[in-house]
Design a protein around this nucleic acid. Structure first.
Length: 859
RNA sequence: GGGCGCAUAGCUCAGUUGGUUAGAGCACCGCCCUUACAAGGCGGGUGUCGGGGGUUCGAGUCCCUCUGCGCCCACCA
């Protein structure tokens, strides 16, 4: 036995290896990016920054592992890997969390209170009324909470063995991110890609902010059709319509039917009077009106839904909006309601929330006989903000937009082309991009009426009455960024001119969180402050992410890079699937079925959890499966044990080349595996590479090691032993490196027994390292014969150590040559006394055992 | 209504340009303490490859069609 045995524990164990190697990698800067490398030596990854206010869940473990396998592969191939991470801590998610944890809410009208202390830190009682605080106080609380969250995140990501370069850590609320986001916005503004517009906007009345198309979702909610009676102005009768939103009746600006609808054709151009409010509105024609729906004629309100907006715009209708930012009916009687009856009706709904207003209106309509029958309940899809709890309203507001092709076919086509240029893994994910871009119906709304975000870096002049002149935009010098326009003032003004006639005001809004995270390559790459670094990493190589945020993060990033650089931000997008729970439902926090990752890592070990994650095919939703983790655990243990066996022999001299045909055949098979794994990983198919490596490894342990065991111990002489020992070491060396991207801890552990440095800094194996003359096909009949012997003993209920009196192998010449070539190894592994080989068409093995009669195993 | 994906053993899934009797692991059962490994080893059964049609010498694989499930988008009177 070798002197190296001293390095190898008697009982190798997986316990505690994470802690040991995490520390070593940190101390040795194993994953440090080499910023002197030129662009072609770099592999740059645009890692998704997890939302700091959430919690890391099993889905993160899944997708971060996928990325890490690619990162480790590329590093071993000789690239210096630019592998940053960031925390996405700006935005509404953080504000929510802070409200929940501290029991406050932001009221931007309040002054800063330097002595303010939040009422809670943790569990806020249910009946607690949120304490209003100033914006600076609120922002400061946000910073405190995210700091704590981010510590926890970092620990988990380290524990997962993700080969991040922690010196590159960024946050999306950090100064560099703010500078990046504001500078990119100002560039967009200068080039005309950003613009403001006062227009109907989907608006969340609870969060009091506008939201973008990409953040909306449909939810099926209960509603009801109400049949309302409108009176023809010529007194010739009534018109009835069906509506789900009778509360908007006072906002009705017109009636609309399909131009070819014979029922209503004669009425086009006439007017009707609305019930209750007695407002005269025209009857108009538009092709979007569906004769099949309801009574075939609809009331247009400003604004009940997006179709109303379309009609309003295309039919040049007046705006009679009544629902304001607070989500309530306007308090004052609108001036288009002119009759005493109308006034009386409106007075009863003024100031009400939509639901209450609806109840009241229905009451009034029923009393006046202008609603026919009862409301008919239905279930219908309604637009919600994805984080919201009440339906979105449409409110006319001034907002900032970035052009994304939603209103411009040339830009849309250019962005569709970018989608084609991007290499998608798996390829079909491109459809989601094309589908989304093709279906955009407006530009990207980026302004949010929120607080914890990157401020829109603009001021507006005030006229002599003190009213904002939104067309007179005051921009900061780029060198001043980042700025907060509420605390800094524009060049040429003084702070005391804020809010004064002839002075200025700052834009009160912040940017959508996606408007900043769409610049993660720029933030991580130092676009604003480290052009040397940026030139070495941009455009990046890989964007890993989930398919659910193709429309937001991926598309937003493509838009920004297209505007700013006229290119894609990366060449390849690797899309991970979701984790489903065993019932095949998407795992989500709200469903309460999320498994805590830290427990898994402790129960199974990091490598085992990574093994499960890496078994999930790229892009494919994968069921959470502890069984898979058990297999990963077994694999790690096996690796330890077989390594102990292989390294237990003295290492043969370095120049020994395995000579035995069996050894060379095994190495030839391994060379094939290297080729397959390399090809797969180049295509971002980590799962295939793992599968091939693993299949080889189990065959290696079960058959090859058993066959050569005796020879390695020296039963066939020194030369034969040297061949086996050299082959065992060479193959172990390769196998460890093939597994290293997946099982970073156990491979490093074993590597440390006999090699210098880290396996993760070693080079990716190449077939050229192995002797080229072996014939891998050779191994098939040998394994088959070995299996036949084992089967025969099992069926005879004998120990595997039982002696075979005679082994008779009939088969094709090539198979016989293979068996003959390693007959001594076979004889030792199978306890075979005598071989009889004869040529035949098919391979048939007969095993003669004592005391039983001949056993001819079923083939 | 449009798009995409999925459907293979009881379960989770491989099956790469079409090619012999369709694979793995888990689970289950049996045998074995064999000196790397009993938290192990060896062996075993199980399939109308969702249905139907087509192309082909040959189809799990390609084409058409139907069914079921999932996701995305559109519709929202």
């Amino acid at each position: 036995m070798s002197e190296q045995m001293s390095n190898i524990p008697d009982k190798p164990s997986l316990d505690g290896i994470e802690e040991r190697w995490m520390q070593r990698w940190e101390a040795d800067d194993t994953y440090r990016f080499d910023r002197t490398a030129s662009r072609d030596e770099v592999f740059a990854i645009d890692t998704p920054p997890p939302t700091a206010s959430g919690s890391l869940h099993i889905g993160h473990v899944f997708s971060y592992t996928h990325t890490d396998t690619i990162a480790r592969f590329q590093r071993m191939r000789g690239k210096t890997v630019f592998y940053p991470i960031g925390w996405d801590d700006n935005g509404l998610a953080t504000e929510r969390r802070v409200q929940n944890v501290t029991g406050v809410r932001c009221d931007p009208t309040l002054p800063f209170d330097p002595d303010f202390v939040a009422p809670y830190n943790g569990d806020v009682p249910r009946d607690h009324r949120a304490v209003p605080v100033s914006r600076p106080n609120f922002v400061s609380l946000c910073h405190g909470v995210i700091h704590d969250d981010e510590e926890v995140f970092e620990q988990l990501v380290r524990r997962l063995g993700i080969s991040i370069d922690w010196s590159l850590l960024y946050t999306t609320i950090g100064e560099r991110a703010q500078r990046t986001s504001q500078l990119a916005f100002l560039h967009n503004l200068e080039r005309g890609e950003a613009y403001q517009q006062d227009a109907p906007t989907l608006y969340d009345i609870d969060e009091r902010t506008a939201v973008a198309q990409a953040e909306m979702e449909d939810r099926e909610v209960p509603g009801a059709y109400h049949k309302l009676v409108f009176h023809r102005s010529d007194g010739e009768g009534d018109l009835t319509i069906d509506t789900t939103r009778p509360e908007l009746l006072a906002s009705c600006v017109a009636m609309v039917a399909h131009p070819e609808d014979a029922r209503y054709k004669p009425l086009f151009g006439t007017t009707v009077r609305t019930p209750l409010f007695e407002v005269e509105v025209p009857v108009l024609a538009h092709h979007l009106a569906d004769p099949e729906k309801g009574t075939g004629i609809a009331m247009i309100c400003t604004f009940g839904d997006t179709t109303d907006v379309t009609w309003w715009r295309e039919l040049n209708l007046p705006s009679r909006a009544l629902i304001g930012f607070d989500g309530r009916m306007a308090a004052d009687i609108p001036d288009w309601v002119t009759t005493p009856g109308g006034h009386e009706a409106y007075a009863q709904v003024a100031g009400l929330a939509p639901k209450q207003a609806q109840r009241k209106i229905v009451e009034l309509l029923q009393a006046s006989g202008e609603m026919l029958g009862e409301a008919r309940p239905i279930s219908h899809p309604v637009k919600f903000y994805e984080r919201g709890s009440r339906p979105l309203e449409i409110v006319a507001t001034r907002q900032w937009y970035i052009r994304n092709g939603g209103r411009d076919d040339d830009l849309r086509n250019a962005l569709l082309k970018r989608g084609e240029q991007l290499n998608w893994h798996p390829a079909y994910m491109q459809n989601r991009y094309q589908n989304w871009v093709g279906g955009l119906n407006g530009d990207w709304l980026i302004s949010r009426q929120r607080y914890f975000g990157v401020p829109i870096p603009l001021w507006y002049r005030l006229d002599d009455e003190g009213n904002p002149l939104y067309d007179e935009i005051l921009t900061p010098d780029h060198a001043r960024l980042p700025i907060d326009p509420s605390t800094s003032f524009p060049t040429g003004f003084t702070e005391d001119q804020r809010g004064k006639p002839g002075g200025f005001i700052g834009d009160p809004d912040v940017m959508d969180t996606w408007a900043t995270s769409s610049l993660t390559p720029h933030i991580a790459g130092g676009w604003v402050d480290d052009p040397d670094l940026f030139a070495r990493v941009f455009p990046m190589d890989m964007r890993p992410q989930g398919h659910d945020i193709i429309r937001t993060w991926l598309f937003g990033s493509v838009v920004r890079s297209h505007h700013e650089h006229g290119c894609l931000p990366w060449t390849d997008a690797a899309i991970s699937g979701w984790i489903l729970d065993p019932d095949r439902k998407k795992m989500s926090k709200s469903k309460g079925n999320v498994v805590t990752p830290i427990n898994l890592l402790e129960d199974f070990g990091t490598d085992a959890v990574r093994y499960w994650a890496a078994s999930g095919r790229p892009g494919v939703d994968t069921a959470f499966d502890e069984g898979q983790m058990k297999i990963g655990r077994k694999l790690g243990t096996k690796l330890l044990n077989v390594s102990k066996f292989v390294l237990g022999f003295d290492g043969p001299p370095a120049d020994v080349v395995p000579a035995a045909p069996l050894d060379r055949a095994m190495l030839a098979r391994l060379a094939d595996v290297i080729n397959e794994a390399t090809r797969a990983l180049e295509e971002f198919d980590y799962a295939r590479a793992l599968e091939r490596t693993e299949a080889f490894f189990w065959w290696f342990c079960d058959d090859y090691v058993e066959l050569v065991k005796g020879r390695a111990y020296g039963t066939q002489g020194d030369d034969a032993a040297r061949s086996a020992r050299a082959a065992l070491r060479q193959s172990l060396d390769v196998v460890l490196r093939l597994f290293a991207p997946y099982l970073p801890f156990v491979t490093e552990e074993v590597w440390g027994w006999w090699r210098e440095g880290s396996v993760h800094a070693a080079s990716w194996p190449e077939p050229a390292e192995l002797p080229a003359t072996g014939d891998a096909t050779w191994l098939v009949p040998v394994s088959e014969v070995l299996a036949a012997v084992r089967r025969a003993k099992t069926e005879a209920k004998l120990s595997q150590r039982a002696t075979v009196d005679e082994l008779i192998v009939d088969g094709p010449r090539a198979a016989l040559a293979a068996v003959e070539g390693c007959r001594t190894d076979l004889a030792e592994a199978g306890g075979i006394s005598q071989f009889t080989l004869s040529e035949a068409n098919a391979l048939v093995t007969v095993v003669r055992l004592t005391p039983s009669t001949d056993v001819i195993p079923a083939q």
